[in-house]
Design a protein around this nucleic acid. Structure first.
Lengths: 225, 225
DNA sequence: CCCAGGGTTAAACTTTTGTTAACAATTAAA
DNA sequence: TTTAATTGTTAACAAAAGTTTAACCCTGGG
């Protein structure tokens, strides 16, 4: 994962698909951009510097493979991940895609869950290793010991609480959308109610002491100092 | 085993395999990184300094043997272990691999169990000799005598009990996941039921007295003071 | 004053552990 | 080798801890 959850450019000629994918990825906490064809894709890619391009293979006006090729020739997209959307069973394209330098491919019809999982995996794959111990003023979060120390006292958080705090603390100051939190802490499979996050936040605040987690109304939560 | 279980870089062009291996090694307590081809492999190796590189031989964009060769020419990878993944029955490659300086090779298709065992073995082989006697406040664990002394009284633990305690005590404070414990104490071959670990923990607690082993619910166990 | 979004609670519910005792496997002893 | 003793594993159930829900409260902005 990344600053704003990572930037993803979605390229497909069907508006509906564009919308569905976009919706799901936003929910998962990514920042999305859209393009309708290869030409637009390259233009937007240069404009927004996405971390990942989701590229439909079958498109008018420069298809996915060509677009990918072209992107790969540009040095600024050397590290940009590319994920292809292929028609079901179109093995030839899959192979071609990987040769061309794609990082993954998914067969249509698209299952949003799967898509999000795979994309999470891609981001995870390229992520830098995380620190074992997060140090802050008067607060230490030790992933190995699964413990939090506040001004010298060791505090025990339950698993979900710990994971939530850890997530927020992994990027101090950055606001995590509720959806993003759900995605990261609960995963894409589990569905929990509205107040669940709040309840956990409350428990963390209660156990650790205040001012750790700040609410950003209508948006999400963030970890501060 | 080792600090954080050791760092392993996995290199394969198939995302699925990358994921499967990664998943299994993480479970076994290793820290994993991934690369899709030889070029990326070398870049990530320099970045993360893995203890072991798991290298697929058949890859586009610089194959495994070339990559291995290249790694071996760099002085910082002198001690890095290399394990090859070879296509089944590709004897020639196997031989070549070992000549080139690989530490082991495994034929595809990959059996996760086997892979983890072999990798554990590799790490064990290179592990520094561990302390024979672990000393704590009022507790001594003597690996040679296979005995535990608590406040002067010698206590006899059964083999599994002893191994379990020893594992936890080798890294006080660090939480060992149940999977990790199974891997280390029982090995990857044996499959035992859910409650087995708990029962052993209970016996240790009973024999040694309390507060040695702390439960981290949903995560694992750890040894504390 | 109403509304939306959060905060609080306690109770319901789930999941994970702890505990036991029986049984299987292993090891040591006879 | 047979027997006895010890150790390891399982299964069933109890207990505990963690998680989620639902209902209600509070607050600030229109």
């Amino acid at each position: 994962m990344d600053q704003s959850g990572g930037k993803i450019l979605i390229v497909d000629d069907e508006p509906d698909i564009l919308e569905i994918i976009s919706y799901n990825l936003k929910n998962a906490g990514y920042l999305t951009f859209q393009a309708r064809d290869g030409v637009e894709a390259i233009q937007k890619a240069q404009q927004f510097k996405p971390d990942l391009v989701v590229l439909d293979i079958m498109m008018p006006n420069k298809n996915g493979l060509e677009t990918c090729n072209e992107l790969r020739t540009l040095p600024e997209f050397k590290d940009t991940m590319i994920l292809f959307l292929t028609a079901l069973g179109d093995e030839k394209s899959e192979i071609e895609g990987l040769n061309i330098g794609a990082d993954d491919y998914i067969a249509k019809p698209i299952k949003p869950r799967l898509l999000v999982s795979r994309i999470n995996a891609l981001f995870r794959r390229t992520a830098k290793p995380e620190e074992v111990v997060l140090q802050f003023e008067g607060l230490t979060i030790d992933r190995e010991k699964y413990s939090v120390t506040s001004h010298g006292n060791e505090i025990f958080l339950a698993k979900k609480e710990f994971e939530l705090l850890q997530l927020l603390a992994s990027k101090p100051g950055r606001v995590f959308l509720r959806n993003e939190i759900l995605n990261q802490v609960w995963g894409t499979e589990v569905i929990v109610g509205d107040r669940t996050i709040d309840v956990h936040v409350r428990k963390i605040r209660q156990k650790v002491g205040m001012d750790l987690i700040t609410t950003v109304k209508g948006v999400g939560y963030k970890f501060d100092i």
